[in-house]
Simulated scan of single mutants.
Amino acid sequence: MDDVFAALANPVRRALLDFLKGKDGQTLGELERQTQLTRFGVMKHLKVLEDARLVLTRKVGREKHHYLNPAPIQLVSDRWISRYAAPQVAAMANLKALLEANDPMSTVPTHVYELFIRATPEALWAVLTDDSKTPLYEHFNMTSRTDWRVGGAREYFMGERRVIEGQLVEIDPPRRIVMTFSAQWAPDVAVDRPSRVTWEITPIGTDACKLTLIHDGFGGETATSKAVAHGWPEGLSRLKTLVETGVAFVVAPSAA
């Protein structure tokens, strides 16, 4: 975590994170115009943030877009913040802003998260595709029921209430899962069009992997695009703990 603290120690890099908080997915040129630095200077600072995994990049056409990755900050919170302080500190991990797009299924992602996990892709895949493991890492300890085939349904429940429904679009073990995502937990999200969630697993060496989660296709700023930013950082951090240790990281509900 030293690289995370070193990256955050510089005010210029914190400002770049603030710019991305205001509008995620910006290009180098867009970020440069908001600073008094040269293009090379901005590139140097972005490289430090990328090395610390606080900023992720994805190429769309000829442009490189930059995205906040709150997962490292969530891991810092998980390690040092007590469960009593967690509700107040949780906002630190919610650095994701919303990128409006005219194309309902834009190729520019809206939420991008990345984690390195000390486990093989097969071990991570086994947890992700085991419905009995879902409540051990999902936000609000949600359960799931899945028909594991392309075109099959994947549903999430809180108790007996279905809160998310989706359909599996792509299954490529142990590398990739793509599904539609239709939130049903409240009237404001239930009217939104289905979005898309992609899980990408990349092997690193013989006993580690990189997990990238992309949630896109909102069709602009919607109630769903705002709401999901609160759940993904927690769920991914809990997933990392479960896969690496075999022990569930239990998050106590905050007091009302």
Rank of each mutant, 00 (worst) to 15 (best):
L54H: 10
L54K: 08
L54C: 11
V55L: 10
R58C: 08
R58Q: 15
K59G: 04
K59L: 13
V60R: 11
V60T: 14
V60Y: 11
V60E: 14
V60Q: 11
G61L: 14
R62P: 07
E63S: 15
E63L: 14
K64N: 09
K64W: 06
K64I: 14
K64G: 03
K64A: 10
H66T: 08
H66R: 12
H66K: 04
Y67H: 08
Y67M: 09
Y67D: 07
L68I: 15
L68W: 01
L68T: 13
N69L: 09
A71W: 05
P72Q: 11
P72R: 09
P72I: 07
I73S: 03
I73C: 03
Q74F: 10
Q74Y: 06
Q74E: 13
Q74D: 11
L75R: 12
L75W: 03
L75T: 04
L75E: 15
L75I: 04
V76N: 04
V76K: 05
V76Y: 08
V76M: 12
S77T: 11
S77L: 13
D78E: 13
D78S: 09
D78T: 02
R79E: 11
W80F: 15
I81H: 01
I81W: 02
I81M: 09
I81C: 11
S82M: 00
R83H: 07
R83W: 02
R83L: 08
Y84H: 01
Y84D: 14
Y84G: 02
A85Q: 08
A86H: 07
A86W: 05
A86R: 13
P87N: 04
P87C: 06
Q88Y: 09
Q88H: 11
V89A: 12
V89Q: 01
A90C: 00
A90Y: 02
A91S: 13
A91K: 08
A91W: 00
M92N: 09
A93H: 01
A93C: 04
A93E: 05
N94K: 00
N94T: 05
L95M: 14
L95H: 02
L95K: 05
L95I: 10
K96W: 00
K96D: 02
K96C: 03
K96Y: 00
K96R: 05
A97L: 00
A97Q: 04
A97H: 01
A97T: 10
L99W: 04
L99K: 08
